[in-house]
Write a protein that binds this DNA or RNA. Sequence first.
DNA 1: ACTGCCATGTGAAATGGTTCACAAGAAGTA
DNA 2: TACTTCTTGTGAACCATTTCACATGGCAGT
Lengths: 219, 219
Amino acid sequence: MPSSGSRKRISESTIHRLSLYYRTLSLLEKENYETVSSKELAKREKLTPAQVRKDLSFFGSFGTRGLGYNVNELKSKIESILGINRDWKVALIGVGNIGSALVSYKEFAKQGFHIVKLFDNDQRKIGSNHKGITVSDIKDLDMEVKEANITMVILAVPATVAQYIVDDVVKAGVTAILNFAPINLRVPPFVHLRNENMSMELEYLSFAMVNNHAPKKSK
Amino acid sequence: MPSSGSRKRISESTIHRLSLYYRTLSLLEKENYETVSSKELAKREKLTPAQVRKDLSFFGSFGTRGLGYNVNELKSKIESILGINRDWKVALIGVGNIGSALVSYKEFAKQGFHIVKLFDNDQRKIGSNHKGITVSDIKDLDMEVKEANITMVILAVPATVAQYIVDDVVKAGVTAILNFAPINLRVPPFVHLRNENMSMELEYLSFAMVNNHAPKKSK
DNA sequence: ACTGCCATGTGAAATGGTTCACAAGAAGTA
DNA sequence: TACTTCTTGTGAACCATTTCACATGGCAGT
């Protein structure tokens, strides 16, 4: 009984898996599948059918017993759960290595995340053009973010300045931040912060190689 | 002491947190701290002291009761647990948007991951130079990877071709892959695969905004 | 040496997440 | 209508991770 207020906490892993389901459903749609079972969905993302069904069950009953899920319908349900059934205007701060790669990264736009503003503090970059967007001076951040009604920001600046910029960004009314700097940022409780730490995964690989794999012990 | 056979499975989260501790310890080192308590370490990464101690306890007893951990010593312990107390030679495949950003990404080198080979299939890119490395033809992958004794690869190619390349890469003897393509890749059980899915975190933010955080929207 | 204080290391308890197992619904067939 | 097959949705069981709580050991001051 999903009473409108009783919001059970949904785990992070469940949300991440919704992203995977969404990705697979998009593919299935292209392959002209009408329906898909939890079994097939699971297979395509190396999960278990029970996991798939449980994840979806947190949000409702989207399937038909004996048949599976309608691909189009489930896709659009997940879109609306994830909030990607709309367009998000995103500002990207820091047009360096990573930053300029992200401007051209097509996956973001595909999911409705549109980078509409670029900021940097480097005079040589300010005024230059990336994919049709002119880089603004970070000093104008407050004004421009408010004016464009932007609530989501991608942060691709050096770790040393990240906290200062976050503080400004929050003051400008942003409530969602995707941070690429390898540092733990402080934000007020009403601001959503996620970190993308690319070294972390390399380190995991390194760990796996050195430990798991290593000189195969007789077990 | 170094548990040779009794290999308890260490959770992914623990390993990820080791990366965080490592990062903080590097910082503390620069700030000339001699020792650090689990409390301080926890505070700096928004974790609990018990969590920190438990994580470390899987690998040994590195602290001193009443005092805490020696910064230098703990840092080097974690380095060796993560396997980053050595240099890794890494090949990067796909010199597009993301790929060319990663060549210049300094964090990798800082942790001992050195990109030493670049591959692409685009004639216009082959032969060109990125940060002192010449882009090779992907057709020479097998030969060059074997010759350079490379076991770790970063994959920054389009999803459509990722699986084919992975198959080749595995044949060439690579056993660790960091994949940036938004697709679920098949690898043999002895190959370590990690995925970096940047849209996923944006989707999480979007979810958080739409659900957790109430309608503050008045357009 | 004694005392007070502090912070680790770790079993045990609590919490959270995943898998199991099965009742029940839907569609097709006779 | 009755029967078969298929697959969902979901409590309950199971397993993993996190947190608790405290005995233990080290250090400093007297």
